[in-house]
Amino acid sequence: MIKALILRNDILAIISNQIGTYTFTDRTTAQAIACLPDPDKGWNYPENGTKVSGLEVVIKQPYPDVSANIGGDRTFTNLWEIHLKQWDTNQSLVDVIGLLSGELLADYLIERVSPIPASDKLLTVEQCKLFIKEWSVSI
């Protein structure tokens, strides 16, 4: 069973020196890495007004997903999502994705990697989602 804190620490061990900064409204700062939902912070993290610089990493703890199969049975899947955003337009996620994909494979089953290029037209930054499959059970 995957534990959020262990996954967070594994990610920090791989890319700690590349993670950006949250600057909160009270001017305090922290590394731009978060696990959601955090019972103390909920889904609205970082709080409104927070400035993000550099690479942001958000680990979304899963809710089991249910899909119907042919024959009436169902498959329950637990899928973790690691959402990467590169707020520095002079940097790229290519190296970070390569590092995480390579190093995390030793301990986790990466189901898929979904890169999303930056778009000036849509005013979006370069992003990527890594999906880690924890378990799948058919009933």
Rank of each mutant, 00 (worst) to 15 (best):
I82S: 08
I33T: 03
G102Q: 12
A4T: 15
A13R: 13
H83I: 08
I97R: 09
W135G: 08
G98F: 02
I19K: 04
I19A: 03
K85V: 09
N17G: 06
E103K: 14
Y63P: 00
D65T: 09
D120K: 12
G54I: 03
E47N: 02
W80N: 12
P62F: 03
Y45V: 03
F131K: 00
G98C: 03
L7F: 14
C128M: 01
A13G: 12
L55W: 05
P39W: 06
P64T: 05
L84V: 00
L100N: 07
A13P: 04
G42F: 07
R112L: 05
Q18D: 10
K85Y: 02
I97T: 00
I70F: 14
G49N: 04
E81Y: 07
A106H: 02
E103F: 08
E81L: 14
E126G: 03
L36N: 11
D73M: 09
V96L: 05
A34R: 09
R27K: 15
T29D: 01
D26C: 06
K121L: 14
S136Q: 10
D38M: 04
I139T: 07
T21Y: 02
T28C: 05
T21S: 08
A34I: 00
S53E: 12
V125F: 10
A30T: 01
A68L: 09
S16I: 03
V66S: 05
Y63E: 14
Q18A: 07
F76M: 12
I132T: 02
S67W: 06
I2C: 04
I11L: 05
V58Q: 07
L36R: 11
G72E: 06
G49I: 12
W80P: 15
L123H: 07
L104T: 04
S138G: 00
K60I: 15
I82C: 06
L104I: 03
D65I: 14
W87T: 15
W80I: 03
L5G: 04
C35V: 15
G54N: 07
V94I: 11
F76T: 14
A30C: 02
T89W: 06
F131R: 00
Q18E: 15
E134M: 03
K51S: 09
